[in-house]
Amino acid sequence: MEPVLIAELIAIGVGSGILGALFGIGGGIVFVPVLTILFGLLAGEAVAVSLVGIIASSAGAASHYVEKGAANVRLGLLLEISTAIGAMIGAAVAVYVENWILLVIFAIVEIYSAASMILIPERASESTDADDALTFSYIDAKGGAAHRYRLSNLWQGTALCAAAGAMSSMTGVGGGTVKVPLMNLLMHVPIRAASNTSNYMIGITAASGAVIYIAHGTLLPDYAAAIAVGALIGSYAGIRISNKLDASSIRRYFSLLLLVVAGVVLLEAGGYL
């Protein structure tokens, strides 16, 4: 592989890794169009390479956030169960549903989530009962203060995560851009804890997919390795940027990101990508 190509792939990985660490998104929405349009990879090859990049970014960021007590691994485990089940159901029924319809629904959900995050102030349910199994705390990286919150709408959130998993497996997009608003708006998890928890979760989802692509021989190892190295570097840079931002800024920027993602998805639905 040419050194220039390696450098380009590492640069793309760095950019996506920063976004991933900041917002808890996987980065597939960045990787896949770039790899297919700019580098001429087939869609399946781009998705496989993207998954390895997502894992590197997610694991790099999650290792920091989990160690600092800024992510909720218990909630992550629970929501990943329903995501995995939803993904399996989605894969089974995908052949019966038109892809463009799903993409338009996905875009509407993203726009609704963005509008809600802009218009509705964050509602974290405070709790003073530390023994309650639904009460958690997280350390805010900016300022170092511990915040306690109580999960709301646990089962509705879990069920919707299954729906998000199904949609993600049917369309190839989703992940963090659905789970973060879900945790923040419905389950009242503070935005920083939600995005950090998402970083832990998306790596698990991506790893399950990557194993399948590797077993089927679809993965281009050179591309995946370069993207992964860049994504890890980017995730460390993203952590440093995240530590300087306050929660309201993260929420505002995340809303803008959702609108961009919705735009990209609508272009894909229209056949322009």
Partner: peptide
């Protein structure tokens, strides 16, 4: 729980990225 999880994630991703770097440098 946090430290145990973080240690495994950090070790795995750093080791993996280091191996990938060596593999890219020596085709």
């Amino acid at each position: 729980v946090g430290r145990a999880t973080a240690a495994v994630l950090r070790f795995g991703v750093v080791l993996g990225a280091a191996l990938c770097t060596v593999g890219l440098l020596i085709p």
